[in-house]
Design a protein around this nucleic acid. Sequence first.
DNA 1: CGCTTGCTTGGAGTGCACTCAAGGGTTCTA
DNA 2: TAGAACCCTTGAGTGCACTCCAAGCAAGCG
Lengths: 152, 152
Amino acid sequence: METTPARATHPPGTCKPDPSTHPRPDGEDRYTISEVVAVTGLTAHTLRWYERIGLMSDVSRSHTGQRCYTNRDLDWLALVAKLRLTGMPVADMVRYAELVRLGEETFDERRQLLESTRRDVLNRMAELQDTLAVLDYKIDIYAGVRTAQERA
Amino acid sequence: METTPARATHPPGTCKPDPSTHPRPDGEDRYTISEVVAVTGLTAHTLRWYERIGLMSDVSRSHTGQRCYTNRDLDWLALVAKLRLTGMPVADMVRYAELVRLGEETFDERRQLLESTRRDVLNRMAELQDTLAVLDYKIDIYAGVRTAQERA
DNA sequence: CGCTTGCTTGGAGTGCACTCAAGGGTTCTA
DNA sequence: TAGAACCCTTGAGTGCACTCCAAGCAAGCG
């Protein structure tokens, strides 16, 4: 299986010269796709797909054509993961990635995008708070029924 | 369009004898599908689909075969809406609906299901809180850049 | 040398949650 | 009596976010 979070072996010269112990030892380190899988929990399929759709730009390659992810890439993936769980559509994240590629000109648009996402997050949290109240109400009812049954 | 939240006219004898002003006037009231659309924001398609997959059970019909939703149905749909925004899969909600149909025997299982959902909600809220921190961090950076530009 | 492991590609397939189309029925209004 | 406004059904289609497949290359090992 490709999704196995394996300890990848590192043939010298392919991608990673330093077989470090922890993810992200820092410096100018490079990761194979399987290491990124292990760190992020994404599948290799998904990582390649992210690249194809423009959500990961410019992943560098080893001399044999294999992907070499950097710490910057991992940072980006971490941000993407956060944005994902706000429910932001992938297309919007691609747009954001595009803005990043376009450079400083787009700082304002990026900030607006993040602020709108921030509002979404707050809304969603409020909705969840509401839902929590409903759940607690229902759970209380069921718990009450059970204790009533136990008393009987 | 079918999704229009229209003031439906009520042919006498079809479904609803009392053309009330507000949604859910209470009592033993009956709603046409288009009224339920107006109240819930779901489409008629979705309502029929919910029924087909077993998420809405036993929606009664008028003598012409048209669906008559009751206040109980609206309550159920409100709960479903809440559960939906916890991210609970439809299949799980169908399971819950099934448990409700099975009667009192299933109180315990229902409570467990709701408690597990409650845990999911708390997790999700924590994740969102995390994400909010990241967003604020990034927004601050962009805001900082802008004010720096303004000073220049 | 052949085998295994891990990586590459483009394109096709999957699962979920709807969403719509086609064809038809009933009832009210003009 | 015609048309509008509703409603019904089955079955197919859509969009999103992956997910997988088949074929093939490169490196290391016995």
